[in-house]
Nucleic acid binder design. Structure first.
Lengths: 347, 347
DNA sequence: TTGTAAGCGTTATCAG
DNA sequence: CTGATAACGCTTACAA
């Protein structure tokens, strides 16, 4: 009764666990136990404390909690915003879907000019993050190796690196290429060209590698004129197609390392009066939104960004909580989306 | 000399400010002063302490710091990942460009099923964020009002709400529409139709409003048959165009609330043998990447996402540090990008 | 110029 | 089952 009055009289907001303790007429230790759901609290006091916590809208201070527990409940994320990444929101959605489950929030760590005085790792440590997600980086980025070798659990997205506490998630790029080649082979194509991305990027290299393996498995010859090294952009696809058209024996099908590249290929074909898929078949990679809105609708390899996002978090969570967890390498399956840009080979 | 040996002998990493103090033979207070660059420290000790900090790669614990200072150096961000947002990465890039300058990192707060026990605001408070960014929300989202009325400084992106401590940033939607109408008027168009987005979304409503005002200022009549309410998607543009074509007096120009809508319009026109821009002119909104890769290349309103991102942070920073800072409302200019989808009216 | 010591809001240990 | 009390790592009066 007295307590009740006291509470009504004092409009001062509850600031901490001690205020709650005072109102409830118990010690802070007890309140803490209630909050953390410890077993050894009588249900009466527990109920009373909980009631007050609800009434007062009390929220424990996560900073203080983090200090004493040595945890931050936070995962750091580095992102290269330089290159526009249309999938980002999809990957994020995948992450978000499991964030509550693992109890982490993601802190987006701003890139700065890293140097030896202030490295990625130091930024992570100063923020006390329990793990790190790395996305859109290049192998040669500054401080990359330090991160890779550090003790901070980390997951790399689209980069096949393994460190003592570092794993990765990426699409099954090799199998994707085999699928594409097999599909074109079913359509009687034998002259299959390839538009590569930068070979110093992981996905650029691995997709090229996949293409070569696929050719081999299909018993198709590797023709160096059928290779064009680009950079995932539409422009590089456009140029690739121009060069293919000048060949004495041009390819009848073209696999691209990106949908944007495929769009460039199709544009160049259109300008030259070459029909897609009438004269040449085209396969893309990514399945960006545009793919199903263009003409012809693009047949392409769809990446499963939701899974990439959710698994990167889930695996990171495992690493964080399992001391000797072997650094995971997850290859996420892709899917061939058949639309209108491929047809049976006429030759 | 003795200290030196001690350091070499003990490979144990430096864990805290006290270790540094011990190594340097000073008190923790002095170390703290050095770290925080206080004036009243002799340059000798300062140098010595700094040297040790560098040698030992010491990083002050930001959690402890946050606890005592009552700050987290963190801005929370809520995002609706449900609707795919292709601009996100651009807005993020804008934010990133100023993050270091203001000294914040962004914590991406996972959405959960908000209810009265655990609201947006409570999540923010538990994380001790100093301010909040809200992006992609709808007015009727749960707990929205609580956030709006709360004392936590917040900036809404693409939503014109003002609260005691809440401001917003958005593109100049109204002026954009006026620009589009004026441009079409210059091309002799008088029958200008409009494809709206959802009217329960802020940008859907405001762009419609802008279109009406623009018509008025241009002295053009408002014809209700020339309005189609859609939802920013390609499909709704497609349907809109279908309905416009059935009119006895069809429009000669169409303004869309989104580029995707414009793409739908153009597709419907193409199927009906109507030439763009020969028979009908089309203007989009957003300037998504696809706009310059389609045929015809789309004339559209470009939003300045970099500025939206950077200003939302900068203004939030101002609000946080200025007690009575009036909640800002920033309208960011757009730009008409003239490409190939508009032509002089034939009539 | 430097050091002492009292917090910041929690959790955890250990007595009662 | 409950309650003192000592941490956690840092900042900051205030004293020396």
């Amino acid at each position: 009764m007295k307590k009740q009055q006291e509470r009504n009289k004092v409009p001062l907001m509850v600031r901490n666990i001690r205020d709650i303790a005072r109102f409830a007429g118990v010690s802070v230790a007890t309140v803490s136990k209630v909050i953390n759901n410890y077993p050894n609290v009588s249900s009466k006091t527990k109920e009373r404390v909980l009631q007050i916590i609800r009434d007062e809208q009390f929220i424990p201070n996560s900073t203080a909690r983090g200090l004493v527990k040595g945890r931050s409940n936070t995962i750091g994320m580095f992102l290269t915003t330089g290159l526009s990444h249309p999938f980002l929101v999809n990957v994020l959605a995948g992450m978000e879907s499991v964030l509550k489950e693992v109890g982490y929030d993601i802190i987006y760590l701003a890139n700065s000019e890293w140097n030896s005085d202030y490295s990625l790792v130091r930024h992570c440590m100063s923020r006390n993050v329990e793990g790190v997600l790395i996305f859109g980086f290049q192998r040669h980025d500054f401080n990359f190796d330090e991160m890779l070798q550090s003790e901070i659990p980390s997951m790399f997205i689209d980069m096949d690196v393994i460190g003592p506490r570092a794993g990765y998630v990426t699409s099954d790029n090799v199998e994707s290429m085999k699928t594409a080649v097999r599909y074109l082979q079913q359509l009687q194509h034998r002259k299959i060209a390839f538009v590569a991305g930068q070979l110093d990027s992981y996905v650029g290299k691995i997709r090229f590698e996949g293409y070569r393996q696929a050719l081999m498995e299909a018993g198709l010859p590797y023709v160096s004129e059928y290779i064009s090294i680009g950079d995932f952009t539409k422009e590089s696809g456009y140029k690739a197609m121009k060069s293919f058209m000048e060949l004495e024996v041009p390819p009848t099908a073209i696999i691209c390392s990106s949908d944007m590249g495929a769009i460039g290929v199709i544009e160049a074909a259109g300008e030259a009066g070459i029909s897609v898929p009438g004269d040449v078949s085209v396969v893309g990679f990514d399945d960006i939104e545009m793919s199903r809105h263009m003409y012809p609708k693009l047949t392409t390899i769809r990446q499963d960004f939701m899974t990439i996002g959710s698994q990167s978090i889930l695996l990171l969570n495992k690493m964080i909580h399992t001391p000797n967890f072997p650094p995971p390498a997850l290859i996420v399956p892709t899917e061939l989306i058949v639309r209108d840009s491929c047809a049976v080979c006429k030759e």
